[in-house]
């Protein structure tokens, strides 16, 4: 445990000195939000102010895209000699990866909060009460945690930081075929099946329901089950991958 804390501090220091990546992870969702609200928003009819509709999707994009960066930080570590040094100090894969994931959670919590701030500035007015906010924070946190750990697995598989960057690409596009930016029923029929049942959709629906104080239905549970499932699989898999990569 204490190793994981020391290694979390390390990853945070490393991210602080690599501000380019952190800023990109934050600026990209903000830019996309501005593009959607001001360029496309006028043409998209969602039954509410578009900015209100789109913010949950942007939050998720920000959280997912930022968390996916964990793949790159893990790959960079695996490529250098430092993992051998950690292993020769009897530090196993779990604290090493937990350090990366914990730093990612902290980094992305801050980034997501900043993106929320910008959303307020451009007219986002949620109707959520304190408990709803708490639930929103909880869901986002679990989502960030799950995606960060999943990215760590990709980071263990990828042999170069460029390849690991491919995962951030995936996380950037996954919200598009979902209800993040446009209602699913405006998409072609063959996409509905995927768009309705992919993991991002219940997370967005739950966030939207909570923020707008609308009935959330089953989406909150579905979101937690998806995230919990991804987290459990990723955590288990990362142990196996780490041993295979270093054995």
């Amino acid at each position: 445990m204490s190793d994981a804390i020391v290694l979390t501090g390390r990853t945070i220091r490393l991210s602080r000195r690599n501000l380019d990546a952190v800023l990109t992870a934050m600026l990209l969702p903000i830019l996309l939000m501005l593009v959607f609200v001001y360029f496309f928003g006028g043409a998209i009819h969602t039954g509410t102010e578009y900015v209100t509709y789109v913010v949950p999707g942007v939050m998720l994009l920000c959280a997912g895209f930022g968390s996916a960066n964990t793949a790159v930080t893990v790959t960079n570590d695996m490529a250098g000699g430092i993992i051998d040094r950690f292993r020769s100090l009897d530090i196993g894969g779990t604290p090493i990866l937990a350090g990366h994931v914990a730093a990612s959670v902290l980094r992305n919590t801050v980034a997501t909060a900043i993106v929320f701030g910008v959303a307020f500035l451009i007219g986002f007015r949620p109707a959520a009460g304190p408990l709803d906010w708490l639930a929103v924070a909880g869901i986002l946190l679990v989502f960030i945690l799950a995606i960060s750990w999943l990215s760590a697995c990709f980071g263990l598989i990828a042999r170069s930081p460029e390849a690991a960057g491919g995962f951030t690409f995936l996380m950037m596009f996954l919200p598009y075929p979902s209800s993040a930016f446009v209602p699913i029923d405006t998409m072609p029929g063959w996409l509905h099946g995927f768009a309705e049942h992919q993991p991002v959709t219940p997370v967005i629906e739950a966030l939207r329901g909570l923020l707008l104080d609308r009935p959330v239905g089953d989406s909150a549970w579905q979101a937690l089950v998806w995230c919990g499932g991804i987290l459990a699989v990723a955590a288990g898999l990362s142990g196996v991958l780490f041993r295979r990569r270093t054995g």
Partner: peptide
């Protein structure tokens, strides 16, 4: 064994950004 040894490999095992 790990508690008694240290390894300095061919590739510098220190963080460039620290």
């Amino acid at each position: 064994v790990r508690r008694a040894i240290s390894l300095t490999g061919q590739y510098a095992a220190v963080d460039e950004m620290q």
